[in-house]
Design a protein around this nucleic acid. Sequence first.
DNA 1: TATCATATTGATAATTGTTACTATTATTAA
DNA 2: TTAATAATAGTAACAATTATCAATATGATA
Lengths: 130, 130
Amino acid sequence: MPPLKYSKQREAIKSFLACRLDHPTADTIYSALREEYPNLSLGTVYRNLSLLSDLGEITKITTGEGPDRFDGNTSRHHHFICTCCHQVNDLDMENIDFIMETASKNFDGHIDSYFVNFYGICKNCLEKKQ
Amino acid sequence: MPPLKYSKQREAIKSFLACRLDHPTADTIYSALREEYPNLSLGTVYRNLSLLSDLGEITKITTGEGPDRFDGNTSRHHHFICTCCHQVNDLDMENIDFIMETASKNFDGHIDSYFVNFYGICKNCLEKKQ
DNA sequence: TATCATATTGATAATTGTTACTATTATTAA
DNA sequence: TTAATAATAGTAACAATTATCAATATGATA
């Protein structure tokens, strides 16, 4: 792949993600950054998100419901998706990377990564329901 | 929700999935069933897949690459997705449901399910590469 | 068995999320 | 300061999925 050139749009996307604890969609990022860059294009956001994700500088989260989300925190962690409000939260949990070993036991191929999503009802929605 | 009425299309989709070990997409199911039901509609396939999935009679697999896939085997198991040929395989592995407990420890909401996908290179692709 | 209410369908249009294209602009090395 | 090319904005195209709606099939009831 060709050498990277600087782009303020890409930097803006990266630093927007870096200081967010939620996990915005491409469209959320686009809308937010358009305030500072009024003629930012949605294509540019998608292009850079997939580039940054390929470079390992951000992570793509596919939830199975709605659009993909993106995470500026690339350290190993997993996510909880509320089936009620659809918010995505980081989970602060022990390392479970050993499940790759467990999965490898009766398997012929080579496993080198995994994604886990946990589903349920978040605290907020639990409180609202009663 | 209103009471279900029988439909041969829905039964066909269910039994098609029941006797397949791979994990076909909506479109694959549609193409295959059109041989027996030439005027089956793709919308009918999608409608029934999401209905059956809501009823828990089949499972939807979101891989993060390409369209969703569907699994007639609803017993607890996980999947391996080859990042080379994109095939989806069942993994025969020990139960790891306890990771829901692990995840619940520092979390306030209520976790009631989880999905894990494992990624890597399958046996076939490994052999082809060398 | 005929009738009725309604769940389901096929056909198609609409929507959503994402990627591709292209002329123009920005970046970087010489 | 020029030249090569990566990146952009704007827009069109695309793929996957959902919605709409008139016609049909199902199943309960008379």
